[in-house]
Nucleic acid binder design. Structure first.
Lengths: 246, 246
DNA sequence: CGCCGACTTGAGAAATATCAATCTTCGTGG
DNA sequence: CCACGAAGATTGATATTTCTCAAGTCGGCG
């Protein structure tokens, strides 16, 4: 059975972990595997499933008609996606595998029923939706106001926080990160060349380095100082969304 | 009583309009007025209300510790906001009045009850949440990939579309728009100086002009051609979110 | 009248993109 | 085990976009 640790979810405190475990019961027996670069959910299709990422990284990406591309969300193990499709029509953007991944599928119909009868399930799903909005808000702030340096510092720290418990610490100072610099550019709204140059500067300044798909944070304080302006207040206050009592 | 037309919501087809009317019954008797620049919802506070914007423009804005600011959402008449606070803990960002506004307040408690018993209410609220995410996705694409010109063209067209029915056409070629160039910059992630220069170019090229808080679109086709790469597929397909049957 | 906020414009600086070569790594077939 | 090829990373030179700073200008309003 999956648990919060295996799912790498620092935020999943007890009630969320409970909901997460209960999702197992709704999960189709055999997880599906996709190779890096594969398309997990096609653009604009309707489909009867909600997904939970079991291993690997995935991302929602929008392809512009002229060839540009922009990632709209990065999913790490434990994240639910296409969750809103359980409640509304399909999303217009594809979800692709950023590394080799395995995903679990949940039938929309059964999830909807469980959502209405089981508060823990409802909390787990609601948390995902709210968390996703929080990330989008931060993303807008990052793209709108952050310099390349700030954006990169911020995103590397965010991944670190989200992966934290996987390494048994509250923050991973070293973690696997499958994105190419090109993909990182499409996450951050920068060209891969510029991502590369900024990463070099950060490496030369001893803040952080990426080698072999592994991020190593050498000076967490300095990196946080850099990303500080983009840091969202929710994290500072350690606030957690709580289900309002109906 | 409010109706879809007065609320300026092109998207509110019958079932949404029905939910909208039903919200009237949940609305506190006296709408509140705020002057331009006023704070409707303070940053980080808990409050027992959901709001519906009746007249004027408002925006959710994040202030960075170093003085920068970034808007996360622009609300037009008819929009519900702080809606998620009915289901989860408070949002960390303030909502401010971009013009003189009047807002209606809805008690969270009563809205939650109505949400669970009335499908039209549920649809109306769900639509708002999904719509907000759609806008955020487009915003990320715009900030991440759009040039200043594209972003400005795109946002002016978006406002036009959202206000459309107010002028009795499907698209307003002329509409009031209370944002200063400074605020527009904080929406688009640009400085007001640059916003100004780009607007001048667009004006000189005969695409669009802003005078006296009024946007006049002189060449809709050319403006759309400019914004085309940022246009979201949902609009092209005229897809509308539909409540899945539980 | 005179001030204040918003808009406008200019000059120059900084950030980021573009184009074009390498260089490295790594898997794969011979 | 090696050669090769492809994809990603790195770097340089240059162009473009956007910002910064500074100085007006314009229009409404007390």
């Amino acid at each position: 059975m999956l648990n919060a640790n295996r799912l790498h979810r620092p935020e999943l405190t007890a009630p969320l972990a409970g909901g997460d475990r209960k999702l197992d019961a709704l999960t189709a027996p055999n997880p599906r595997a996709f190779p890096a670069g594969g398309t997990i959910v096609e653009q604009g299709t309707e489909h009867g499933f909600v997904y939970r990422l079991r291993t690997g990284w995935a991302g929602r990406v929008r392809a512009l008609p002229d060839g540009r591309a922009q990632y709209l969300m990065v999913f790490l193990p434990g994240d639910l996606f296409a969750i809103k499709s359980a409640f509304v029509a399909a999303h217009p953007d594809a979800v692709v595998a950023l590394s080799d991944v395995t995903v679990e599928r949940l039938e929309q119909q059964r999830l909807r029923e469980a959502f209405q009868t089981d508060p823990e399930i409802a909390l787990r799903c609601t948390w995902q939706i709210v968390e996703e909005e929080r990330r989008l808000h931060n993303w807008v702030v990052s793209l709108g106001q952050g310099s390349a340096e700030e954006r990169i510092a911020h995103v590397l720290l965010e991944f670190s926080l989200r992966l934290g418990p996987a390494q048994g610490t509250s923050r991973s100072l070293e973690y696997g990160m499958p994105l190419t610099q090109d993909q990182l550019g499409n996450v951050l709204g920068l060209t891969s060349v510029h991502v590369n140059r900024v990463l070099r500067r950060l490496r030369e300044d001893g803040l952080v380095s990426i080698r072999n798909r592994v991020v190593a944070i050498h000076d967490p304080e300095a990196l946080e100082r850099l990303a500080e302006p983009l840091r969202d207040a929710t994290l500072k206050a350690k606030a957690r969304p709580e289900l309002a009592v109906g």
